[in-house]
Simulated assay, not measured.
Amino acid sequence: MLENLNHIIDQVVKDKGIDRAVLVEALESAVLSAANKKFRNTRDLEAHYNDELGEVEIFEFVTVVDEVLDSYKEIDLEEAGGIDPEVQVGDSLGMKMDAGSFSRIAAQTAKQVIIQKVREAEREKIFNEFKDRVGELVNGIVRRYERGDLIVDLGMSEGLLPHREQVPRENYRQGDRVRVYISEVKMATKGPQIILSRSHPNLVAALFHFEVPEISEGIVEIKAVAREAGSRTKIAVASYDSDVDPVGACVGMRGSRVQNVVSELRGEKIDIIPWTMDVGRFACSALSPAEVTRIYVDNEMKSLEVIVPDDQLSLAIGKKGQNVRLAAKLTGWNIDIKSESRAAEA
């Protein structure tokens, strides 16, 4: 019917890791579909792959009858006896179709199936490679912009850095190297889609994990991260070794470790906060650099009323409310800040 496919199939199985049985079944199904289309579904056909010949063979099945009413699907007993002397009325007789009339269509179909299966295998391979890497930092090269989104070359695949995941004021040109966080991997109609981020809070956590050995070794843990990308981040850290200061470990000798992170984030400010189970003390630290006079905790409403000196009010709230907003995100509690004079009036 067509050239020996065994060599091609074996090569595809070896190079692309496709299951041979899956590929053969796909070939049989595609060739059968093409045959049915050619004969307009007027015949009862089956397709089987012949391993010895390395081709897909088409068999036509007809029912043995005394009187033929449908010449495409029936054969009379006398004619059937010439093919198989033991045949009886009601039997189904299978005959291999002449390859000549069908070889070109079969060859084209086989080629299309193999190309499609190779493409599917490559997509599956990329998906399996990246699906377990969500949360990792990867390096890539900027390839192009598409409607504000950035296409990043990750080596064996391309990733998408959507506009919403980019940091304001960060600009890239084609060929620039970029360090990104894998935030999501999903299978789309056109293949696997690797969603990248430069604004995700966990990008900062991943950078510290890379820079601080105590974090990667499990001695220091990042408990929470609150971030407004491109402007400021607060991270809360705790130590499982009384001899290791978690904040000092993250800062590094002469601030070297935190400075490496700040450089990667292009100057974003980072506050490193000691984590504690005491939410009052934790909130006081989270509001740094402002000083706190006293704090009232409402466990039922999960809210905090924080009193600060009058001259510390603007510092505690921060520019456009950023400091208190990040502190609330970090602690997971609602925070209401009042000056001492206003609290005295209440």
Rank of each mutant, 00 (worst) to 15 (best):
Y49H: 07
W275D: 12
A188T: 14
P85R: 15
S256E: 10
A80N: 03
P85N: 13
A346D: 14
P289N: 11
L304M: 13
Q88A: 11
S242P: 06
Q193W: 00
S239F: 09
H209Q: 12
A80K: 08
L27D: 00
V261F: 14
V65K: 09
E79L: 00
G267T: 11
M1T: 13
V62K: 14
V167N: 09
K234G: 13
A343W: 09
G280P: 08
A238Y: 07
E217D: 15
Y296V: 14
A80Q: 07
S242E: 14
M277E: 15
R266E: 13
K329F: 14
D51T: 08
S231H: 13
E228L: 07
R43G: 04
V204R: 11
R325E: 10
A283F: 09
T276E: 15
K190G: 00
L150R: 09
G248I: 02
G218C: 06
R254P: 06
T293N: 08
E214V: 01
E146G: 04
V13Q: 02
M156C: 06
D243I: 04
E340F: 05
F61N: 13
V62I: 09
R123T: 01
D310H: 02
G148H: 01
E136H: 01
H209K: 13
I9N: 00
S239Y: 06
A346V: 12
R179Q: 10
R198V: 10
K14N: 04
G318P: 07
D19K: 03
Q193K: 14
L330E: 06
G332F: 13
T276H: 07
Q11A: 00
